[in-house]
Design a protein around this nucleic acid. Structure first.
Length: 237
DNA sequence: GCGACAG
DNA sequence: ATCTTGTCGC
């Protein structure tokens, strides 16, 4: 199969926030909330970090065996940051680097877990949904905080979940999921080609002993240089 | 107008 | 996101 990755994630974008929001509405209409992925063989986790006071965007992708969770490959990309962080426009800041990192992988994943939201977004196009639409691949958003939406109290048990809904319409945007006991819940929402019901189930399928599912947890470590920083701090002491 | 606001 | 040590609790 040919590469599903476009060279750049925003066709005809003039760079303005207003145009970005308009483009999001167009792309959001292309999101498909139905389970449409093959038996999972390879899954990927993507996340982005920054260096040099934010001037360098660093994207990390980890490819895992869906059965053993063994790391099959990793990819890291560093490019100049092109835009500031604006709530609601995260994908425009981070996707360029993410796409480059994905292209560098030796194989195309069957499902991608992305840090950030899928459709649980003001215009239903969080970074996971945006990534899913431009690549055509199945994606799920795994965020640590709510961007939009509200929910009822959540149970304390591992696996407890409650729907995240639009405050005005009641539309279900995702799931507030307690991936582990005594931890703040994760906000899980479909990106593309995954149903609202399956998203949290798939996340729990890859949660081991940490709050975050393995794909996202490992990508997060790479993107934020967890190991390097820990080593540096240790040496200084 | 005011408050909220993924990473 | 990032800047940063130790510390309380499972």
């Amino acid at each position: 199969m040919s590469s599903p990755y476009p060279s750049q994630p925003f066709a005809d974008w003039d760079g303005t926030p207003a145009a970005a929001r308009a483009l999001q509405q167009t792309l959001a209409a292309q999101v498909r909330l139905v389970d449409d992925f093959p038996p999972l063989r390879l899954i990927a986790g993507v996340d982005v970090g920054f260096e040099e006071q934010g001037q360098i965007t660093r994207a990390a992708v980890v490819l895992l065996d869906a059965q053993t969770l063994e790391v099959v490959a990793q990819s890291l990309t560093r490019i100049p940051t092109s835009m500031p962080y604006i709530p609601g426009l995260l994908s425009f800041r981070e996707l360029p680097a993410v796409l480059q990192a994905l292209q560098a992988l030796p194989a195309v994943p069957d499902l991608i877990f992305s840090d950030g939201h899928g459709i649980a977004h003001p215009r239903r196009l969080g970074i996971a949904a945006h990534l899913g639409v431009v690549t055509g691949l199945p994606t799920i958003g795994v965020a640590k905080k709510i961007l939009t939406g509200e929910h009822e109290e959540l149970g304390e048990a591992r696996g407890a979940q409650v729907p995240l809904r639009d405050r005005k319409t009641g539309e279900v945007l995702g799931t507030v999921l307690r991936s582990k006991e005594r931890v703040r819940p994760l906000i899980v929402s479909p990106g593309n080609r995954v149903s609202l019901a399956s998203a949290p189930r798939l996340v729990m399928q890859y949660v081991t002993r940490y709050r975050l599912p393995e794909p996202t947890r490992l990508a997060d470590r790479l993107a934020s240089r967890r190991d390097e920083k820990a080593a540096a701090a240790r040496l200084r002491r």
